[in-house]
Write a protein that binds this DNA or RNA. Structure first.
Lengths: 344, 344
DNA sequence: CTTTAGCACTCAGCATCTTTGAGTGCTAAT
DNA sequence: ATTAGCACTCAAAGATGCTGAGTGCTAAAG
């Protein structure tokens, strides 16, 4: 007993139907589908086999069957086809592309909004980041006595800011001078190397300012990671749609988890750098997301991958449509960023 | 028939009890409270009066009474007393204060986290802003050909960034020169005046760069508002606790509304600059928030009010406790910012 | 050997009915 | 003015029964 052609066809029909209706699907509806020339009894037998093989599950004895995670996995790998979008949906996306330039934050937020409004699920977009990020500019702006704001601009277009302590005998002029020195000397230096080089090479010039230099370096190192943690989120309310009705506690857990940016970050990160990644139900690891799936896509500046966007929905989401949307949006976002950030 | 002393005492007891239990309170529980030397029948009569006066409502004939918005208003104005916090809660807040300096974003987020974790409601904190914001530094960082990143630092410690177009014949050096000129000439200039002055006074120096100057000015003007729209939000999942159980649609609406930052911004803004503001149920205007209350506090840098923080919860929230927490947190946040930002 | 008709069986979901108990308003006595 | 007492109301929680979609199995037909 293995997955012959007919079993595959039936399985596929079940997944399609279930994604569409959300209700367990029985043998009768399938037999009514004219593309099957089979009686419900025959289909029942096949379904029993599929259940034994672990592709189907039965909520209770007298209900239809529901696809298991394993079935979705098979579906996504072998049977899914991208679906076309409605004119409305296309229009939403191209309106997004026609937008004028803005701050990076705004672009990310808008990307997430479009994603969630088309899919009706929860959308996530990470800020662009890359271990190879290069320095464009660094500025120390004096605040109150003993404090300064560090602003770092990288070639990923990110302005990161943090407050650090400065020696009280360091005036605005000196801070400005240091800013220019660093900006010039380390222009285009990889951020991953910058920390070390700063400490090594500037130590002699700032002999008596060791603590200051150390804090500055630390900040830039921390900024690397911290910045990536900024994730644009949109459509969290859609989470409430699908947790089995009335199960409000479940919904709370989900929401609480979604609010923790580091959970999200880990999830998105785990996808790795692939065109598309699907993680279905149990594959997500956590029990909390046990009937959710996460589909992600990588976006690029030029040809280097710099970020991830994704959609969290129920395992029974229309994967074909979601992939189509993610594909379009990741390319659009990549295009926008490439335009603005890439040097020729 | 008016609000004599006894009626007030009864009303107060009802509100206290209802906030505590969440269930409609009947005459019997009140009469058992030893501080009343009255039979349940007498209390029933008084309660009937209070209902006629609009302070109480009855979910259905055979249930106890529930305070109306009007009752809460009276309670908040005249009867509420601040409550003490548990040792744990105090500890959470002072741990927050002991934190090392960080970026503004992080501080705001953490403030919201603490607020929501102590109150178990949804917390909001606006970024510091003020029409009197003054310029500290402006930097134009060249990106790809034809684009630059504008970074603006104000005395509210905010680094705002946006991408603008620049004429292609403007090199990095020129951009840097402009940055220094503006930073120096307009140091400490009010942001509200900056736009106008830039256009008027720099026009002659950048004769052939009119479009560029205009866009720069526009960006800074827009940044004023846009920045304020950034609101740290925490504990949205707590919204799911109180919408009448099972009423999942209601919860969705609430969440969707909360996600719209501009709604939030308006709500917080409407509070005006007062020490504390309470808006109870219908007073919030929207039907969506009809059984919610919003309590806000203003925080200051030095003595100038620069932002608002608040808590959204059910109308039956323990106002006394919430005020205590807001008071402490607004002062703490104010203190932190003042320390870092204020010039002596 | 494969397919199918037929039948007995299961069980969630829904509607209906009943019971329970907390709470009320009114009246008459204190 | 207060209160005891009583009849009344009604939501919430159980109990009961019905329905229908769906199953598994068996035996006959292809």
């Amino acid at each position: 007993m293995d997955l012959n052609h007919r079993k595959l066809r039936i399985l596929r029909a079940i997944v399609d139907e279930y994604i569409l209706s959300g209700a367990p699907v029985g043998s009768k509806v399938l037999s009514q589908n004219p593309s099957f020339r089979l009686s419900s009894a025959t289909i029942r037998n096949e379904m029993a086999d599929l259940e034994d093989l672990g592709y189907l599950e039965q909520p209770h004895t007298s209900a239809g069957r529901v696809p298991s995670d394993k079935a979705y996995r098979l579906y996504v790998n072998n049977m899914m086809q991208r679906s076309n979008l409605s004119a409305d949906e296309m229009e939403t996306m191209s309106a997004y592309c026609r937008n004028r330039v803005k701050g990076l934050d705004a672009v990310m937020r808008e990307t997430a909004n479009v994603l969630s409004s088309i899919t009706h699920y929860t959308a996530l977009v990470t800020m662009p980041e890359n271990a190879a990020n290069r320095l464009r500019h660094l500025q120390l702006v004096p605040l109150a006595d003993g404090y300064a704001l560090v602003v770092v601009v990288t070639d990923a277009g990110v302005a990161r800011d943090a407050v650090i302590h400065v020696p009280t005998d360091m005036g605005p002029d000196e801070l400005d001078k240091i800013s220019r020195t660093i900006s010039q000397r380390y222009y285009n230096c990889r951020m991953s190397e910058l920390t070390g080089r700063l400490l090594r090479e500037m130590g002699s010039e700032l002999l008596d300012k060791g603590a200051f230099l150390q804090e500055l370096a630390d900040t830039m190192e921390a900024g690397q990671g911290a910045n990536a943690q900024r994730i644009a989120l949109s459509g969290a309310n859609n989470l409430l749609d699908y947790p089995a009705y009335g199960d409000i506690d479940r919904a709370r857990q989900l929401l609480a988890e979604i609010e923790k940016k580091d959970t999200l970050y880990r999830l998105l990160k785990n996808a790795g750098v692939v065109e598309f990644s699907f993680r279905i139900g149990s594959e997500l690891g956590t029990d909390i997301f046990k009937d959710c799936s996460l589909v992600t896509a990588t976006y690029r500046i030029g040809t280097t991958p710099v970020g991830t966007m994704g959609v969290i929905g129920p395992t029974r989401m229309p994967y074909g449509k979601v992939v189509t949307v993610l594909d379009y949006m990741s390319k659009s976002l990549g295009g926008i960023l490439t335009n603005v950030l890439e040097e020729e």
